[in-house]
Design a protein around this nucleic acid. Structure first.
Lengths: 195, 195
DNA sequence: CGTGGCATGTAAACGGTTACATGATTTA
DNA sequence: TAAATCATGTAACCGTTTACATGCCACG
């Protein structure tokens, strides 16, 4: 009776692509909503069974050579998805370990926090690069797909947030690495870093 | 033997304020790291017991009138915190329900997604306002506290991300509400919304 | 005195991951 | 035929939240 969000991930993906196996679902999650969602097999397979038992999806083609049991969404499943979409979204309690470590940064040498920030910047540069690639690719071909405008929105939010985080990261690094800028006593031992 | 992150939240907070009870920890989490972390009593109280048993914290003053059992960090606890701070941070699998619903937005009337975005904007405006207040308050008094520079960094990241999300939200709303702008066929029935 | 809120605590449930088991199929 | 990897599945565990229980103190 209790629908977890995994249910709607699967139902949603089945509206995008009509036949998916558990394996397919996993791949689809990773490749299309991977940067803001994740699912593990331990969730996916039992959920498929449960959704089928409830009639929200149904076993469809048993893919010829590939021994993959595929499923398709039913009208009832689509209905259920629509209802969920209309409910207000619920953001779970935040838990950002990077910010947690930074918050307690004064307990460690400045180099520790600096390393974390560099680490974050690295990840963000990577993320930005792939997001921009995807965006460029999507913009090249005309929007035949009714989902595409929404996908672009999720993408542009990701890009905007990553850019903001990167900007912050650079200035944060500068602040941390310049050792306590006492205005009239320029630090004697740390040469200004010029990459 | 396994240290959960709740351990380090408590140890960290005890380096900031020397004596805290379970109740205090909860309040401190909410008021100081609330926008990127959360803890429930069900975690806090058992963790306090466990940390005390391991000697990482110790019962200190039993607060006079208030029947609150307070704890203080021990040298071993501080050591443990330092070690953890030096480890790379681990960001748990992302799970953003807002983006999930937006991704499947094409399955529902555009008004549904628009409402979600407005909802998000509302939350972000709220968040930005309080963050800016805190920032202004912090900047007013000179940095007596060695933790403050790090706290400011977490704050400025929050502000930057929220601003970016708000900017995105406005343009996203505009895009969604303008019904499929066919260039040479200006939409006949939707009057341009002027707030 | 009684009631409402403060403070501590815990049992049970929950959503989710990890680790492992098992065939079946492709590739070398 | 051996090794790799595809695909499905599940049991156990884990961190966490929820809901509830309990006693204490302040205040009307």
């Amino acid at each position: 009776m209790n629908h977890s969000r995994t249910d709607y991930v699967i139902l949603g993906l089945l509206t995008v692509q009509p036949n998916l196996s558990g394996y397919d679902v996993r791949k689809a999650v990773e490749s299309s909503i991977g940067y803001f969602w994740s699912e593990s097999y331990g969730q996916i397979y039992p959920t498929l069974k449960r959704l089928a038992a409830k009639g929200l999806i149904q076993p469809s083609a048993f893919a010829p050579k590939s021994r993959r049991q595929q499923y398709a969404i039913t009208p009832a499943g689509r209905e259920s998805l629509h209802q969920w979409l209309a409910l207000p979204f619920y953001n779970e309690p935040p838990r950002n370990e990077f910010l947690l470590k930074l918050f307690f940064g004064a307990e460690a040498p400045a180099a520790v926090s600096a390393a974390h920030i560099r680490d974050l910047n690295q990840k963000n540069r990577q993320m930005l690069a792939t997001a921009l690639e995807i965006e460029a690719m999507a913009r090249r071909q005309p929007p035949q797909n009714p989902h595409q405008p929404y996908w672009m929105l999720t993408l542009t939010l990701g890009i905007a947030l990553t850019r903001a985080a990167l900007d912050w990261g650079e200035s944060a690094l500068a602040q941390i690495e310049s050792p306590a800028p006492t205005p009239d006593l320029p630090s004697p031992h740390d040469p200004p870093s010029r990459p």
